[in-house]
Amino acid sequence: MKLAETVTFGGAGLDRAAHLRGDAAALTRMQARDDARVVLFWRGKPLVRGEGRDRLALLPCDHPVVASRDTGDRVLLGLAAREAPRFACDLSNWEPEDLDRNELGQYLDPSEQHHPDLPADHVFAELRRLMARLSPVDAELAATGKAILGWHHTHGFCARCGAPSDLSQAGWQTTCTRCGSHHFPRTDPVVIMLITHGNSVLMGRSPGWPEGMYSLLAGFVEPGETLEAAVRREVFEEAGVAVGAVRYLASQPWPFPSSLMIGCAGEALGRDLNIDPQEIEDARWIGRDDMMVAFAGDHPVLKPARRGAIAHFLLQNWLADRLD
């Protein structure tokens, strides 16, 4: 698929500079540079700025909010244009005043949090809500930072012996304080399938999704399984549809919390549905004309996948006949 890497979070050529992660002297020099910047996160939300919430707020390393954190907690995201260093830092232990906990954790958290030591237009906002507004560079930085900091939150102890682990390699490794085992970030492979039969595409919805929202079927790849086999298994398990030929289309890092969405196209061998209610709430075949109406926002029932998600990207290119 020629347009594969134009998907949101598809990458902007960030130099991840992995060879510098273990170089303490180089990390110190980079943080002292005038063009070094830090992306702050609060409980998974990146700090953004502007009325449109369409830009990351990149703070200098000596900003009081950044300087209040231990320099060892900063994650090296990589080098941007002209080798400008970019770091991520977690501010999750800050407790905002008047925090509305009812909004946190919703499918699409609408709340924003403002730190009193930052400009008025700098707020922490849910990445899922604003991902399609960010530039490719900002999107890659935000996705990388959110995923790696999320890994820190869930992997503070050694998976081998259970002892606490310390961060190393600029945040890209943990080392057990007891047995010395090293652990590295994990990415979960997920297949997401554009399954077609004639001029229709198979769509489904999970319980708890916003009313009318449908997306492509998706599921985790199991150990010892090929992508093609995972596509066929997941579609049959969820919708009872047998799938023949399968081909790869595009991929998308999906930091909610740590997946790699692997977009595939599959040809259904029939249209009969047998939905597993433990897997999905509903599934249906949607014709191309109906999908075009849904994308225009005029369909009485169907709301397509959210902009920025690979499902939206694949469907948009299917409608435009640009999958090859």
Rank of each mutant, 00 (worst) to 15 (best):
A4H: 12
V7P: 01
A12C: 01
A12M: 00
A18S: 11
R21L: 05
A24D: 13
R33N: 05
R37L: 05
R37A: 14
V38L: 06
L47V: 08
R53C: 11
R55L: 12
R55H: 14
L56T: 02
D62S: 03
V65I: 14
A67F: 12
L76D: 07
G78K: 05
R82Y: 14
E83Q: 15
P85Y: 13
D90K: 09
N102S: 15
E103W: 13
Q106P: 03
P110Q: 06
D117C: 11
L118E: 05
A120N: 12
R128L: 15
R128M: 14
L130D: 03
L134T: 01
E140C: 03
G162R: 07
A163T: 10
P164V: 02
S165F: 00
S165W: 01
D166N: 14
R178H: 15
S181K: 12
F184L: 13
T187E: 13
L202E: 09
R205F: 09
W209A: 14
P223M: 04
L227H: 11
A230K: 00
A230E: 11
R233W: 00
E237Q: 13
E238A: 15
E238P: 06
A239Y: 11
Y248P: 08
L249V: 14
F256W: 11
F256L: 11
I262E: 11
G263E: 15
G266V: 09
D276P: 08
I280T: 09
W285I: 00
D289S: 14
D289V: 10
M292W: 04
A296R: 05
D298P: 05
L302M: 08
L302N: 05
P304Q: 04
R306P: 01
G308P: 06
I310M: 13
I310T: 04
L315W: 00
L315Y: 04
N317G: 03
D321F: 10
D324V: 05
